[in-house]
């Protein structure tokens, strides 16, 4: 996984290595991967907010917290593996896995994950 996660916060950091990293990411990454990355950032932020709520305010109802947090973590894992498999830079590692196959896996995994999440939601 490239170090793209730190990219958005580094936007205003201004320090030159981070700035060049951000620049390189912006220029070399395809739009598809950027879309996936923004979805990953969204999932991460969602999970963090839910976790903070659980710690700071209350974990009641706990099943709902479990469902919400697990959906964020699970979806993050599925999306991250999708990104790893469709990234052209990793073509050599996933020779027998086409991007379409990766997306089919992603869709199936997501449906199963959502089934369990709704099970927990109560």
């Amino acid at each position: 996984m490239p170090a793209t996660k730190t990219a958005p916060p580094a936007k205003k950091a201004g320090s030159s290595p981070l700035l060049s990293l951000w620049k390189a990411y912006n220029e070399t990454t395809s739009t598809r991967l950027k879309t996936i990355d923004s979805f990953l950032v969204f999932l991460m932020l969602s999970g963090i907010v839910q976790f903070l709520y659980c710690i700071l305010i209350t974990n009641f109802p706990f099943n709902a917290f479990l469902a919400g947090f697990a959906s964020c973590v699970g979806q993050f894992v599925l999306t991250a593996s999708l990104r790893a498999q469709v990234n052209p830079a990793n073509r050599n590692e996933f020779k027998e896995v086409s991007p379409e196959r990766a997306f089919a896996d992603f869709a199936l995994g997501s449906i199963v994950l959502h089934f369990f999440v709704y099970n927990f939601l109560g």
């Binding site: 879309t35 950032v41 999932l43 907010v49």
Partner: peptide
Amino acid sequence: VSAVFTGFIAAPWVVLLGLLGNVGPQ
């Protein structure tokens, strides 16, 4: 408190939409 954290939960959606608008996937 519930309302404030509902706002916090909605914030990542704003980030997502902003990023998607920025990236502009076709």
